[in-house]
Simulated assay, not measured.
Amino acid sequence: MNDSNHTGFGGATARSRKPRAPNAPPASHTTIAGTKNSDIVYRDLRSAIIAMELTPGTVINEKELTQRYGISRTPVREALLRLSEDRLLDVVPKSGTFVARIPLSAVREALVARRALEAVTVREATARASESQFIEMRAIIQRQRETAAAGDEAAFHNADDDFHAAIAAAARLPGIWDMIQQIRVQIERYRRLTLPQPGRMAMVVGEHEAVLEAMTRNDADTAVERMAHHLNKLQLDIAVFRDMWPDYFVFDPAVDSELLEE
């Protein structure tokens, strides 16, 4: 474990940066109708882990969770089991429960799958998108530009998702975006590490603009190529971010060497 770990729920250039202290997501005092307590705990913890508010190695205290939510241990344990099955928590006998490190092999597989799926949505959206949908995409990019200028990483991340979702919607293939959401859990944790890098958000805005420009010219081949370039940046920079936060990643030389060489 590294010094950034804490107890409780509460073309890149390598540089040292102390991760921001995780914030505890608010406890859900009012139960949503039809939502089990275990679902609420699962949802809150999952969101905090993916957003890197709870960083790899963070101790998850079962007793503290029961007190925070005012519930028994059974629903808490159910939530923790589901998160373990999602590979977001590690349960270590006689040691405790910890936020899992990011497996590079899962990142690689998810990146390959996402590139293939987004190539389909970009190509179809180029052929099918209406002018109003292109206007919507331009507005999303402008929102990204503004949130980048404000340094609002969370809002920028949401706008980034909105751009990719808008492409899938214009392609009339929204289900593909749902599929991407399901496979990209580990990618999202890694992406959150990259956003604070100086110039990263501005670079993403430029890459999105390049994709949209090709789409509006009805040049599907170029649009797909530019989207692939955009997504490939995440893979190209993995070695740098792994070296910056080695305790955040699981690296198996026999499996992951190819990932760091591509």
Rank of each mutant, 00 (worst) to 15 (best):
N2W: 10
N5M: 06
A14R: 14
R15A: 04
S16E: 11
R20F: 13
A21E: 14
N23M: 13
A24C: 11
P25N: 08
P26G: 15
S28D: 15
T31A: 14
T31N: 10
I32H: 10
T35H: 14
R43A: 12
R43C: 02
L45T: 05
R46F: 08
A48H: 09
A48M: 06
I49E: 04
I50S: 02
I50A: 08
A51N: 09
L54C: 08
L54D: 02
P56T: 14
V59G: 06
I60D: 00
N61V: 09
N61T: 07
E62G: 08
T66R: 05
Q67M: 13
Y69T: 04
I71H: 07
S72W: 07
T74E: 09
V76F: 08
E78D: 10
L80M: 15
L83Q: 01
E85Y: 12
R87M: 13
L89A: 04
V92I: 15
P93Q: 03
P93L: 00
S95R: 15
V99H: 04
A100S: 13
A100G: 05
P103Q: 09
S105W: 13
A106P: 05
A106V: 14
A110N: 10
A110D: 11
A113C: 00
A116D: 06
L117W: 01
E118M: 12
E118Y: 09
V120C: 04
V122D: 01
R128A: 15
S132V: 10
F134W: 05
I135R: 03
E136Q: 04
M137Y: 07
M137C: 00
I141S: 02
R143N: 11
R145W: 12
T147R: 08
A154C: 01
A155Q: 15
N158A: 13
D162A: 07
H164C: 09
L173F: 01
L173Y: 01
I176M: 05
D178V: 10
D178R: 13
I180V: 12
I180G: 01
I180W: 03
Q181M: 12
Q181W: 06
I183W: 02
I183Y: 02
I183V: 15
I183H: 03
I183R: 07
V185K: 04
V185W: 08
V185S: 10
Q186G: 04
I187G: 02
I187R: 13
E188D: 14
R191H: 12
P196D: 06
Q197C: 00
P198K: 01
G199T: 12
A202N: 02
V204G: 00
G206D: 10
H208E: 04
E209R: 06
A210P: 12
E213Q: 11
A214F: 03
T216V: 14
R217Q: 08
D219E: 06
A220G: 07
D221R: 10
T222Q: 15
T222N: 07
R226V: 10
A228G: 02
L231W: 05
N232C: 01
L234G: 11
Q235A: 11
D237M: 09
V240D: 04
V240A: 08
D243I: 14
M244Y: 05
W245G: 00
P246M: 09
V250S: 00
F251R: 06
F251I: 11
D252E: 06
D252Q: 03
A254D: 13
L259I: 14
L259C: 03
L260W: 11
L260D: 01
E261C: 07
E262N: 07
E262V: 14
